[in-house]
Write a protein that binds this DNA or RNA. Structure first.
Length: 355
DNA sequence: CAATCCGCATGATGG
DNA sequence: ACCATCATGCGGATT
């Protein structure tokens, strides 16, 4: 088992690369009670794998779960696949306040739930899509982009019961989101053209009805951070039909390191006038590329682009922290290589990381 | 005038 | 064979 570190607030508040949820008031009390007997500061921060950027909100796993599990056992809490003893880098302890925030031990937590979602995902291949319409929303900026695989299963499960609450996806700060559509990115989606073609039927059923070819502007926010992008949702004429596209996606693709095979998913929130969210599901990267190199790629963002108010760290500070981080990652990778070589289990350490 | 953007056309694919 | 979808090509417009 990895060692644990004391959480030091100043080390995280001074960096914009740790975008924690802005609110702590909506924590799930039922979930909290299930872990209330745990000692203070006994949360385990899973390390980041090759597709995880440190800019994203890092989940904490209840230490109780981690210590009770066997090496090689798989967790999902609430959305990060995590295998004991198979992840690299160091865990961290969190403050009491952050513990409270992370006591969201809901259905995502257990392996049972994970298996359930896998089964539902497989069922999705032969199910028709949700007929719930976006049309009830009149606000143009109420949907979010997200890239989150597991929520698809919940979306599909709701197909069987239209009366069921469609807002099944919970963000770390407990916002409730509804799945709208998912797109696996192609070469032309991640190229320099800065546009992403959306699936027509899902777009027409779940996104706002476009009255003209100019389309509408939308603002999307990362489910797990506060980072936002401004895009345009519009259509092109194609024969007698339409092609629906998202435009101004260059920065979105670059900063998230999106590549062919990655996926994005659109969400809306239940209030329909507040939330713009997204997160990312990335495909597995080749293991031969050094970890620190992959993470550096993700962290090399262009700060000249749209910058939200919460991102107040200067570029120099960020680059300095990046350099330090790279060095730490390089050192950690060496350690991991040594420790992984001695693991008794033969499972794979590769996971699709949900950002 | 070159680079980029924009929007339609075209072809591959699958039902 | 026909049709719908969609990835991408490509030419005109704009910067």
């Amino acid at each position: 088992m990895d060692t644990f570190f004391t959480y030091t607030p100043t080390t995280t508040t001074n960096t914009s690369t740790m975008n924690f949820p802005s609110t702590t008031t909506n924590t799930t009390t039922a979930a909290a009670s299930s872990t209330s007997s745990m000692p203070s500061s006994q949360y385990y921060f899973p390390p980041h794998d090759e597709t995880q950027t440190l800019m994203q909100f890092p989940y904490a796993y209840p230490l109780e779960l981690v210590q009770a599990g066997q090496q090689g056992q798989e967790f999902t809490y609430p959305s990060y696949p995590f295998v004991i003893g198979m992840n690299s880098s160091q865990p961290h302890l969190v403050s009491d306040e952050q513990q409270q925030e992370r006591r969201l031990v809901d259905a995502w937590t257990t392996k049972v739930a994970r298996c359930k979602r896998k089964m539902a995902r497989q069922k999705s291949l032969c199910l028709t899509k949700d007929s719930a319409s976006w049309a009830s929303s009149t606000q143009m900026n109420t949907q979010g982009l997200a890239v989150y695989d597991a929520v698809d299963a919940d979306h599909v499960q709701n197909v069987n019961n239209v009366n069921e609450d469609p807002y099944t996806f919970r963000t770390p700060d407990n916002k409730r989101l509804r799945f709208l559509l998912k797109k696996e990115l192609k070469n032309s989606d991640v190229g320099s053209l800065g546009r992403i073609v959306l699936p027509k039927r899902e777009a027409e059923e779940n996104l706002p009805i476009l009255s003209d070819k100019d389309g509408i502007q939308i603002v999307v926010q990362d489910v797990y951070s506060n980072q936002v992008w401004i895009m345009k949702y519009k259509y092109w004429l194609n024969n007698k039909s339409r092609m629906y596209v998202l435009e101004n996606t260059v920065d979105f693709v670059k900063q998230n390191g999106l590549a062919i095979g990655d996926s994005i998913t659109l969400y809306e929130d239940e209030l329909k006038n507040l939330g713009q969210y997204f997160s990312i599901k990335k495909v597995e990267k080749p293991v031969n590329e050094p970890l620190y190199k992959q993470q550096y790629t993700n962290l090399s963002i262009n700060c000249n682009n749209f910058s939200a108010p919460f991102m107040h760290e200067s570029r120099d500070e960020e680059e300095a922290s990046l350099a330090l981080l790279i060095e730490q990652l390089r050192h950690q990778e060496e350690q991991d290589a040594n420790s992984l070589a001695t693991l008794p289990i033969g499972g794979t350490s590769s996971h699709s990381r949900l950002i």
